[in-house]
Simulated scan of single mutants.
Amino acid sequence: MNAAPQEITSLVGREVYSNNGVFVGEIEDVRLDLDARSVTGLALAELNHELFAGRVDGNTGVILPYRWVRAVGDVVLINDVIERLDTGSEEEEPEIGQSAQST
């Protein structure tokens, strides 16, 4: 993604949904690869507590790999892989940490 800086910062605050319409969370920050000049992840807060039940507590955020993003508009759509977290699939899981801030 070769987005201009204003485009990257405009992601903050947008809601993230799976392509099946399930609310995932709200973008709090972005993870950047400065050498490649690309976005590599989205740090989410205000998570869907049902979706992440048993995985994160109220003060924890997650970082989703940017390759899961399908579309960016008024909201961000990601692959439905997030809904299959507890199936034991071999897909890469989101990173879970005490702070979603990553830059």
Rank of each mutant, 00 (worst) to 15 (best):
M1Y: 05
M1G: 14
A4W: 06
A4H: 13
Q6Y: 02
E7T: 09
E7F: 02
E7P: 00
I8A: 12
I8N: 03
I8W: 00
T9N: 15
T9R: 15
S10M: 04
S10L: 04
L11V: 04
L11H: 06
L11A: 08
L11P: 04
V12D: 00
G13C: 07
G13N: 08
G13S: 10
R14H: 11
R14G: 08
E15G: 14
V16W: 08
V16E: 04
V16F: 06
Y17E: 05
S18H: 03
S18D: 10
N19M: 07
N19H: 12
N19G: 01
N19P: 12
G21N: 07
F23R: 14
V24T: 05
V24P: 12
G25A: 11
G25R: 08
G25F: 09
G25Y: 04
E26G: 02
I27G: 02
E28S: 15
D29V: 03
V30T: 13
V30S: 04
R31P: 07
R31H: 11
D33C: 02
L34S: 10
L34E: 10
L34V: 11
L34K: 13
A36T: 00
R37Q: 14
R37T: 06
S38K: 12
S38G: 08
T40Q: 09
G41L: 03
L44Q: 05
L44V: 07
A45V: 12
A45T: 09
A45F: 01
E46C: 11
L47D: 05
L47P: 08
N48L: 02
H49T: 14
H49P: 04
E50P: 01
L51P: 15
L51V: 02
A53Y: 03
A53Q: 10
G54F: 03
G54Y: 06
R55Q: 12
D57M: 01
N59S: 13
N59P: 00
G61N: 08
G61Y: 10
V62N: 06
V62A: 03
V62E: 02
V62K: 02
I63Q: 15
I63N: 10
I63K: 08
P65K: 01
P65C: 02
Y66P: 00
R67F: 12
R67P: 01
W68M: 12
W68V: 07
W68T: 09
V69E: 13
R70W: 05
R70D: 13
V72D: 07
V72R: 09
G73T: 00
G73W: 00
D74Q: 12
D74G: 15
V75D: 09
L77W: 03
I78N: 01
N79G: 14
N79Y: 11
N79S: 15
D80Q: 05
D80E: 10
V81R: 01
V81A: 01
V81P: 00
V81G: 00
V81K: 03
V81W: 02
I82H: 05
E83F: 03
E83M: 02
D86W: 05
T87L: 15
T87Q: 12
T87E: 15
G88V: 10
S89M: 11
E90C: 07
E90H: 11
E91C: 01
E91L: 07
E91F: 10
E92T: 06
E93M: 14
E93S: 10
E93V: 03
P94M: 11
E95D: 14
E95G: 02
E95M: 12
Q98M: 13
S99D: 15
S99Q: 09
A100M: 06
A100D: 05
Q101K: 13
T103S: 07
T103L: 10
